[in-house]
Design a protein around this nucleic acid. Sequence first.
DNA 1: CGATGCATTGATATCGGTCAAAGATGGTGG
DNA 2: CCACCATCTTTGACCGATATCAATGCATCG
Lengths: 213, 213
Amino acid sequence: MRLTDFQRKTLEDIGERVHPRARAVIYDAGDRADAVFVVIGGVLKSYRKLPSGKRAMSTFLFRHDIFGLAERGRYLNCVQAVTPVTLHELPLAELIPLIKRDARLQFKFLMKVTQGLREAQRRAILIGRRDAIGRMAMFLIMMRRQHRLTVGHDWDVPLPMSRADIASFLNLTSESVSRASRGLQQRGIVKFEKRHLARILDPASLEKLAAAV
Amino acid sequence: MRLTDFQRKTLEDIGERVHPRARAVIYDAGDRADAVFVVIGGVLKSYRKLPSGKRAMSTFLFRHDIFGLAERGRYLNCVQAVTPVTLHELPLAELIPLIKRDARLQFKFLMKVTQGLREAQRRAILIGRRDAIGRMAMFLIMMRRQHRLTVGHDWDVPLPMSRADIASFLNLTSESVSRASRGLQQRGIVKFEKRHLARILDPASLEKLAAAV
DNA sequence: CGATGCATTGATATCGGTCAAAGATGGTGG
DNA sequence: CCACCATCTTTGACCGATATCAATGCATCG
């Protein structure tokens, strides 16, 4: 599931690196979709604007994630940088012909999208939970896993996004996120060192809470 | 986004048609994944077994949907027929080499999986809603749309699945589904002719309820 | 014509949302 | 360097919607 050096080279040829700053909007729903993006570094959020004006978080995006899959030439979600990010921007005009020629390369994309699909299914289950604290536990585990993949250790987990973003992702209010965090901390499972840094003290209990669906 | 005749032929060559009866389990989570399926007719449900033993519906599957995407050679979900179904079973051992040769054909799969991803995102939003009646409205609209695609009209919408399945899909209890249904009927928006048949009397109101996120 | 599973209905409790306010935090400019 | 302001976060009180529990009603199939 890794790109070969040659594939990496090929993709770099048709794309360019971009470095949006934190809070930059990469694209907005309804924009003409003319590129797909690969996350090189940093964190982004993808959300949808609901008829009522509220925002429904779709997902957070991390290193190696791809985004920008469109419907009928238009983006459906909005994507915004949470931290400063580095992206690889692949213009569709070049990417599509390329993967229609190179089935091996396309296959990597197919795998990636499949992963994304599973991720979305998992999130649907997460959101389905009734208890705020369990959802928060799942989120922390997810973030820990993500962090471990990039950094290697997993005790100090950075949470670059705001509580409101977390709330949106978990389908809670930021008040509930706050209360759930407090709950976890009072039970000695997690210590919130700073706003954007959680230390997991009792991974076993955390897993147990997360699994208690 | 349609298969060419040639592509259809190619796929039919490597696969075979199967006809599981209602309630048949197509595969179970953890089974060795050795085929992908395309729905020719009928309705299926895909769900995941949670640690607690509860079942979390992933999605319903209709004509033209594909399923059986695996992770590390194992299926993650369970898939079960709701009605008698006709499936096209594509053994991975033949499908993978084929789409690694035929980029055009693979591209159809890529599009399909992308659609599935979007569908999962939409469902995540559906589930995030707080109001039972709105979720039920969204479900009915979804079923109506599905039915229109296959049959052409959309006033009498069949609901082949049980209330429990619907509840699971909407992340409600079957009691709440019942109450929401009654609510819709009392407002004159939908008439439940029989258990498995809904007549939509006031589509506009239904849309309005569904959109009121 | 039972009988079993599915669906409906009702009463109550629980948990998160909402509203309101106080408390941190971080960035800016004097 | 510090004070101040805007924004984000936490906390509390209360309310409402859905889950839960329990019982009845209804079909569908031997």
